[in-house]
Design a protein around this nucleic acid. Structure first.
Lengths: 216, 216, 216, 216
DNA sequence: CATGAATGAGCATTCATTCAT
DNA sequence: CATGAATGAATGCTCATTCAT
């Protein structure tokens, strides 16, 4: 998590406060991911940090509030991890798309490795808190689909993707593949060979499945 | 749900008992899907049936226990809904695969329409109960992947799928697509046009993406 | 308190339930009067009865709820204690009014002696819970004033009270006297001679203060 | 409130400190009267003044302590508002008593109008803090009764009040009337016509009720 | 000396589970 | 065998008070 406070013209006290806030988010993140939201008591979070549990409430409204912040942080981390690569317009051929896709998969894989808890939170935990939270997850999916569809639209426009491609629906399918791969990582984090194979399989499936028909 | 008791050589009392048991599962299923597992009290389930909540404990060990049974029932329903179509060995060409895939998608869609709660339970709710439950979900995914990979292996053997196909990894991707579509259905159940488009997109993506290279 | 359950065509369980409910009201009443509402924890009430504190919540919504019931019971008790004597229309002369007043004072005194806690609750405790509760107390005062004013109106009509009597305003003053006497009882319950003197003083003050001018 | 510090030969710092102390009392007074003692947090008081809530503890021992001071100030204000008129020995006839009484009622009314919060604190709020505080309220009542009884004793001695007057008991009744009127003001501050009528009713009741028997 | 961050005792409330009827 | 009354562990949250800065 990149919740470390950016010290900028702040008093020491302010910096400490921000740091503690960030620490609480981190601790909550760990607890939520490890034990699950409902199984985690505020006291658990506080204890992990060695602070009084009243202190928690100086920084966050309530238990639900911090989940929001934890999830925000997780989503932000994921976004940051992938952002650099989101440049559909730079892709000019199927081969370039393949490279781009490989890069994204690599970044996602790196993120999963360094941040499996964020994945767990987003894929498994956050879906069952309440309607509002489920909507956030839906929005996250939607955002992923939006990005994916931009690639697809671009490729279609450029002509290296099928002209009959339904970009929106296909984007959903693409995001689903990535979700499935991420889940698989969570379920079997040790199976490196699968992880490698999965990346390749996705690339193959997409390049073949999206490609414009050979001139034939 | 197909939890109706199969009455066979049972006393009336035994049949009644089985029926009540099935009713409890149904009621729990409704409540869990509507309000979520953690938000549902045993008393809610009992009240929905008009029975005393002590009665619940004559049929199920505890709250966790019934979730298990509810999920089992849901998975069984899903399996039943799709089972007829699982016959990879009957597929002999890409065209037949396409037909088969369309049929599966149709069945899955019908299931989603008639049983969105089961979907919700499996995709959103059950992932955040505890480790054991998460394993069950993982196993469910695994089973889906196994079935999918059988199709892929068969097609590869028969030669109408790519020879370089990684059947296991690709199966994961395929199941991911279906998951994504199902989730999308939960998030936007009214968007019929998307649902139709999604089915088509998956079929197109897979037939193109899996097909053996044209002789060319 | 007269909260004992009236057993009538009830199952034993129902009677027990009503009895426990009444017991909880009594216990809460004792605690509230002794320690004050805010200083009383639900656990105190439960402990006094030797029941689990969860049991409390099977009978009352929340802490506020029982205060309501406790106060209702107290007001009902007071009303019952005084009701017999409320018959303004039977009073036909100043002498009869004097007798009637003496009777009311005696009943009030008896109530204070047998039920000082109810007095404490109404006069001291309930005024500082919240606006809604204060309104109830105001309504109680209003009711007392209404009754008092009926006597005054009747006496005025009959001609044994001053014709220039402002019945409403005077009723407020009369109720104030009784309040003051009741409070004094709470503050100095042992001072019997004062209590006696107070009754006499009120009677003297009112008979002289309300009487129609002697023909003179 | 007249809690403004009397600056006399004090350093600026000392004066400031006294001023802050007085401000805290005022703020606490407002909060206690508006929200009630138990519903008021120290932080509320501090926030109202724009000071840190730690600062509060440099001026007062604890929450209970300031209530004491707030109440003292309120009682002092009430005393000041009425003091000028407390001169029983100057009253030499029933007519003069009537005038005097009218004056006191007017002053009390003015106090109620300018300081309803003080009334609320004394009549409604302070009675339910704890035994010690209730004693203070009792003492306040006693003081009012003492003053009232002085008038009564004086009038009795002078001969314009009944010779059989129980001055102590009657004083309690008199104070009760004033309490009732004050409460009524709190409950219905807008009903000016009642307020006027109430004053008149009290005067009529007392002059008639206390007067020595006409020469008859 | 003012501040406000930290603290933890304290309390209301919920609910899974037990068991006497 | 169904029932629902009783239970108390568990937990979110508040706020008076302390004390390092």
């Amino acid at each position: 998590m990149t919740t470390t406070a950016q010290a900028e013209g702040l008093t020491r006290a302010q910096r400490q406060k921000l740091q503690l806030r960030a620490d609480i988010i981190d601790a909550a993140f760990e607890e939520f991911a490890e034990r699950g939201y409902h199984q985690t008591a505020i006291a658990d979070i506080a204890q992990r940090l060695g602070i009084g549990h009243g202190t928690f409430y100086r920084h966050f409204e309530n238990k639900r509030d911090i989940l929001e912040h934890v999830l925000d942080a997780a989503i932000e981390d994921l976004t940051n991890a992938l952002r650099d690569d989101f440049s559909p317009e730079k892709v000019n051929s199927l081969a370039e798309y393949k490279t781009q896709l490989a890069s994204i998969l690599k970044k996602l894989y790196a993120f999963a490795q360094s941040n499996p808890r964020a994945l767990r939170l987003m894929l498994l935990e956050a879906t069952s808190i309440d309607g509002e939270m489920t909507k956030r997850i839906a929005a996250m999916h939607a955002e992923g689909q939006r990005v994916a569809s931009e690639y697809l639209q671009h490729g279609k426009r450029k002509g290296f993707f099928r002209s009959n491609l339904d970009t929106k629906a296909t984007a959903t399918a693409v995001v689903g593949m990535l979700m499935a791969g991420s889940m698989q990582y969570l379920f079997q984090p040790e199976d490196k060979s699968f992880q490698k194979a999965f990346g390749k399989a996705v690339i193959d499936l997409l390049t073949a499945g999206l490609a414009a028909q050979p001139a034939a």
